[in-house]
Design a protein around this nucleic acid. Structure first.
Lengths: 116, 116
DNA sequence: TAAATATTTCTATAATTCGTGAAATATAGA
DNA sequence: TCTATATTTCACGAATTATAGAAATATTTA
């Protein structure tokens, strides 16, 4: 797994650093690979369509969610691989890379790709 | 370990969603529990004192770093427990809490407290 | 084709965040 | 006490981000 770049991590963190977008992302994480239609997200989280769309675009640009059209709806789902890369980025070099203590963490982050 | 609240997670993610602050945090993560003096951080990352101070305040308010004075210097260190809570928050309820797949992840996040 | 549904795009305003330099505060040593 | 070092606080203009409503686009069904 290629390690994430700083700019990429900042984009992902920025995307998540917002109450509405974080709620969307967590909803999608909990929904797993099936994903959720944009309209259903809007109803569940009580958001205006334009606000939701803008939020989904930001999460999408950060690589945290993927989408595909299904009829009139667009189904959004969390990108677990990207989420895993982000966790790995935050943990890498922990304690100067002291393998005895921290090395397992990077591997562990990979498991966040449980739904991929 | 108490689970993190959404508002708290947003604060932490916002604090990290900035190139300079993310660099500071990663430097502190790599330094481990010894921490690094503010001035040394500034020299290593080539930041102005006032900019660095503002960044450290934001990271501190988010609970991601701790500080203590040592002589004229102030030593900053990463708060690994808070980092662990943040990772856990992002992973919780993954795949609707399907234990067979995702439950281990929450436990795993605890290990990010390797230096605590 | 016409109407209904689902979502995005556009536009404008409001709010927040960013970075800097100067001044202030705290500590140590001569 | 005076001076040097280390860090924070303050104030402000510049840049970015957030939100809403209206209009536009895409798809399905009648």
């Amino acid at each position: 797994m290629a390690t994430m770049r700083t700019a990429n991590a900042v984009d992902a963190l920025s995307a998540l650093a917002h109450e509405g977008r974080l709620s969307i992302f967590k909803l999608l994480v909990s929904a797993g690979t099936d994903g959720v239609a944009a309209g259903l997200i809007a109803r569940k989280l009580d958001m205006l369509p334009s606000t939701l769309s803008a939020s989904l675009t930001i999460l999408s640009n950060a690589g945290l969610v993927a989408s595909c059209r299904k009829g009139r709806s667009i189904i959004y789902s969390a990108d677990f691989a990207q989420m895993s890369k982000l966790l790995g980025f935050l943990m890498e070099d922990c304690c100067r890379g002291n393998a005895a203590i921290c090395a397992p963490l990077a591997q562990i982050a990979n498991r966040a790709a449980c739904c991929a």
